[in-house]
Every structure is written in structure tokens, then in C-alpha cells.
Design a protein around this nucleic acid. Structure first.
Lengths: 339, 339
DNA sequence: ATGAAAGCGCTAACAC
DNA sequence: GTGTTAGCGCTTTCAT
């Protein structure tokens, strides 16, 4: 487990200093650009460092220096494109602000235990702030850390009002879609509602769609999505019998399933059945012409990093901020045909 | 930029030692389980550490201890599910082996410069090994590091034979698919070939499909995929005129586009046109019934981590290892109908 | 089994 | 502007 790496990685600040007949302090100043140092020696040092292949030891730097420039991100193991997209956006945004991101991916198997272990690993790095992008760890479990380090629940709604959070405005997404369908003239609408235990955000979307439709005086048909069944077949049945003219899915993946089922049953989309999704993250979603809401991933990442950086600078009041995406009107929805 | 975190994160090894009236050395031994220490004091220490909220400073640990337990991963900024899936799998596998993974995501904008800067940042952490999961940095650019630290090009084919690599066996994937279609009786086949500059792996798939079909005595129709056009429309044109009975796409995303185009033109899939893809990573791919090849992401991640860990233990001969995925026979392909 | 002491590689006052 | 001197928090011989 021990690498006896050769040359360059063994070069230390002292080596560079000795090579130039300078002191380590001067080399240090040259490397991170702070402190008084003549432009000339600075150049010489940088040049020599490069020639010798000197790369400052990040652990030593962080141990010795006061300011912490690492952000911790706790991520749920997931193929979920929403999370992977979030990670890369956060990483890029943090980099832009000169912060390093250290990520710990936790598998969901072990209830709570893995998550807390992950948190501890992050704390070991003395991260300046913590972004928690998983719902597996409760607000309750987060509490003990709140006083010690900025914590931001990221990309997930947060029930605990003590915990600062910034998430997608899923209710808004749901309403964007219902508004879209209703304004197209649809009245007989089915909604796929995911079991909250399978996916909480999906459940929220479905539930709000249903509520909103009811508020508008409609009586949506509801199909439950669980681990066992996705409800799509049943919904398409209804479309086949012309009992519904629109089907609202909680994700684009499910929308694709619905599209496929409709196609197999020769139910024309969007002529006979309009179908909507939610996500907008699938590669090629634009080419596919899906009607959906695009999650504002980049925007969320920017806002999250900004928020956590702010609360590192000075404590902030916990707040539940959310960001809404935008409706993408594709070709899977159309005005209700009056036949 | 400086957090003056309170209580727990200020607790140090010395605090725990003082609290118990022991020496720091003993506490240290208790924390990482090595060295002679009585089970009894070990328990006491662990208990006290927990009570005081002591979390060892990872930087100090890594600076003081000999063995390096970090793996560096250079990742291309990408929404590409193949990469995000790889990242989470690698992370999980590394964790299983008690390695920490530090990732740097590089955006592709700046030719080579960003990539090298990313590499240096990784080296700063004195990572024990480097996984390079981007093609943006050439074997040539990797050369200088080869002698100093194990480097593994991961998930991408490597032209430079000096560089150890483990990647997907894209040619095998291509042949799995051609074999599948040919055995279904298809003879008039179109292939979408992506511009190599847009995506090298996609280009390989397409090119090998074409070569393999030619080898089998067929004359595939070729459609170029560039940033500007995806060739799908043209291909479906041909299907409409019954000049082809199968269309091979380089990715599942493009396959979806093709499916949609076919549907729009009322070209029945798979009756009139069989369509294949490649990836198998899209959420819901199983439900959609796509015929594709599933990239062996988990397997690759396992193999990559194993390989890099091996070469950390002892130098290995550079080698170009590749892993093939498996054919998924969906419902987008079927035997050629003889009409 | 435990403690004392010497670093690991770097930064940060404080002198000069 | 540059050098000196203490650490940062931990590990690790080497004694005891």
C-alpha cells in the first residue's frame, strides 16, 4: 500500500529553496503568491520549481495554513442523472471560486450508518462547508453538525427548518406541467404517482399535480408507481378506451416507458394521448421532443456553492430556498383533439 | 474564507490524550488500530474520542503517516452517463478497499492546459495512483508521470502502448450487435457513424460495425453524425422506402431519436425497421425494451481499482486491457420480415 | 503496554 | 524583500 514514487513527487519546498540558495519561506511565498516578494525572485522560484517538478504537498499546505478551501459533498450512490449532473456542476462552480470539492458517495444499503460515516470522513478533511445531496440522512442527524460547520442540504427539499437548504421547486414544476396540459384543453388527465419511499421528489411532483388538477375542478385518474409496477400499462389502457387524453409522468424515464407502451398499443402520441415528463436531463431529450420541465441543475449548483461559501464567510439564517426549472414544450403533448 | 468552527472540530488528539491522562501516541494507536495497545485502553480511548467528538485531521494523518490511501481520478466534465456511472462505481469500489477517491473534473474548453492543471492538483494530494477517465489528455502528456506514479487510463482506449489502460471493448460491442442483426436475417443495414472528433468511442463503434458488415459481405449504408446533423432522418427515409431493414446507432440516446423519427414517419419498429443502440445506461432502458449492449461499468470500475491498487503495490507492465459488455435483446429489433 | 521525542512538508508571524 | 523560528495535528521509532 506504500508507493515509493521516484523523483518529482519527493521534491520538497526545502529542495527548491536549497537549489536556489533561498529560504523555504521565500519559496512558500512565491508558490502561493501572498506576502512580500520581488517579482524577480518569484519568477526564478516558479521556474526552478517547475524544472524540478515540485508540486506542493496539499496535505501539508492545508495543515499549516489557516484558511480551509475544501467543500465536502455527500452524495447518494445513484445512477440518477440529476445527482451526477449536480456533482459535475458543483465541482466546476467550486473550482471557479478556488474551492476544492471532496466527495463521498454513500450507498443506501445501510440505514443511516454509512451516511454518518461518510460525514465523518468529510469532517476529517476539515471541510469548510458541507453539502448534503441525499435524503437518506435526516435533518435530525444533521443537527449536531449545524453549530460547527455550514451545512447545506442540496437538491433535496428539507423538512427541518433548522437546516439550510436549497432545492428544486418541484411543486412549481408540477404546476407548470398541469397548467400546460390544461391550457391545451385537456380535462381527462391521468397522473402517475410514485411511492414516496421509492422517490420522494417524484412523489411530490405527482401529488402536487393531482392537487393542482383537483383545485382546477378536474378529477385526475391516479396510478400508483411502486417498485413492483409503474402503472404505465394501466394508464395506456385508459387512453386506448379514450377515457383520458393526457398522461403525466413524474420523470422523463417513465415518460419514455409510457411513450413506448402507447406506441406498442397504437395509441397515437400526441394526437390521441399527450404525455408529459419531468427532468430534462436525459441525453438527447431535445432531439426526442419530450415535453418536460428541465431541472435547473447548473443554476442550483451555482446557488448552492454561493450559499455555502457565504455561510462560510459569515453565519446565515437557515432558509429553505428553491429554484424552479423551465417548461420545455416538446412534441409529446398537443392540444386536445375534439373528436 | 476562514471558518472558526466551534467545539468538536477543534478537538485534537492531544485533547483526548489529556482528558484520559494518556499520551498522544497511545491515542494515535487506538485510533488507527495498529501497534501494541491493550484492548481495554483502546476501548476507553475510542469511547472518549466519540464523546468529545474527536475526528482525526485527515491532512495531518496523511502528512505524518507513510502509506498513501488516496486514488486520484481525472474526469471529463460531462453529462455522459457512462462517466458518471463510472465515477460512482469507482468510488464505491475504492471505498470497499479502504481507499479514498479524490476527483477533479476538468472542463474540455481549454485544450490540454486545464487537464494538466487538474493532474497537478491531484498530485498535490500525493495520490497513490491516478485514473485518467478522459481522452482529452494524450498519452504523450501522461508520459512524464508514468515513472513516478501508477497511471491508468480508465474507460477509454489508449493508443500509447506505454500507458496502462483498461477500457470498454467497443469493437466487441459493435460485433455483438452486427452479429445479432445479421443472425436475424438483416442484410440491408444502415450504420450511423459519429465523427471521431465528436466522440471517439462512438466513432469506433460505428466504424467497426461497418467493417464487420463488409467482412460479412454486406454493403452497409453509412450516415455521418456530426455536431450539425445526426443522420437519423436520412436513415429513416431509407427505411420508409424499404431500402434498409435495420439501423444501427452508436448510442442509446441516438437510438431513441431514431425510434422517435421512425414513429413520426409511421415506420413500424421492429416490424419494418430494427433499430439497435449501445450503452444500456439510460434509466429505464430495460422498460423501454431497447436492443443494445450494456456497458460493463461496474465490472470496469472493479477491474480499474484492482489494477491501480496492484500497480501501487508493485509496478506492472503497461497493458491494454478491455472488457466487453453484454448484448441486451430488446424489442426494437426482430427477425427481418420476408415480404 | 505506554511514553518521549523527532519529524512529515508547509505557513506565518516576527525579525533583520 | 528575505530569513528565522515556531508551530499545524498526527505517526512512529525507540526507550522504558
Amino acid at each position: 500500500m506504500s508507493s515509493d514514487g521516484s523523483a518529482r513527487l519527493r521534491v520538497t519546498e526545502a529542495d527548491v529553496a536549497a537549489y536556489l540558495g533561498l529560504s523555504r519561506a521565500t519559496v512558500s511565498r512565491a508558490m502561493h503568491g501572498r506576502g512580500r516578494i520581488s517579482a524577480q525572485t518569484r519568477e526564478r522560484i516558479l521556474h526552478a520549481a517547475n524544472a524540478l517538478g515540485y508540486v506542493p504537498n496539499a496535505h501539508a499546505v492545508r495543515l499549516a495554513s489557516r484558511h480551509n478551501d475544501m467543500l465536502g459533498m455527500l452524495l447518494r450512490d445513484s445512477r440518477n442523472p440529476a445527482y451526477s449532473a449536480l456533482l459535475s456542476s458543483v465541482q466546476l462552480e467550486a473550482q471557479r471560486r478556488q474551492f476544492e470539492v471532496v466527495t463521498v458517495t454513500v450507498s443506501a444499503d445501510d440505514q443511516g450508518h454509512n451516511q454518518l460515516a461518510g460525514l465523518r470522513r468529510l469532517l476529517g478533511f476539515r471541510v469548510a462547508g458541507l453539502m448534503v445531496a441525499t435524503g437518506d440522512i435526516s435533518g435530525e442527524q444533521l443537527r449536531p453538525f449545524l453549530g460547527e460547520i455550514p451545512v447545506l442540504r442540496t437538491g433535496r427539499p428539507e423538512p427541518d427548518s433548522e437546516v439550510d437548504a436549497i432545492s428544486y421547486d418541484e411543486p412549481a414544476h408540477a404546476r407548470l406541467l398541469t397548467e400546460h396540459l390544461v391550457s391545451l384543453g385537456h380535462r381527462d388527465i391521468a397522473v402517475l404517482r410514485t411511492d414516496a419511499r421509492v422517490s420522494y421528489p417524484e412523489w411530490v411532483r405527482g401529488q402536487v399535480m393531482i392537487d393542482d388538477l383537483v383545485t382546477r375542478g378536474l378529477r385526475p385518474r391516479i396510478f400508483e408507481v411502486s417498485a413492483a409496477t409503474d402503472g404505465v400499462e394501466a394508464a395506456v389502457d385508459l387512453a386506448e378506451r379514450a377515457e383520458i387524453t393526457a398522461l403525466m409522468c413524474p420523470t422523463d424515464a417513465r415518460q419514455l416507458t409510457a411513450l413506448r407502451a402507447a406506441h406498442a398499443r397504437r395509441v397515437a402520441v400526441p394526437e390521441a394521448l399527450s404525455i408529459s415528463g419531468c427532468d430534462g436531463l436525459m441525453p438527447g431529450v431535445d432531439l426526442l421532443g419530450l415535453t418536460t420541465v428541465r431541472l435547473p441543475v447548473e443554476e442550483l449548483a451555482k446557488a448552492a456553492v454561493a450559499r455555502i461559501v457565504d455561510s462560510i464567510a459569515a453565519p446565515v439564517e437557515p432558509n429553505q430556498h428553491s429554484i424552479a426549472g423551465t417548461l420545455i414544450e416538446g412534441t409529446t403533448t398537443a392540444a386536445r383533439s375534439l373528436d
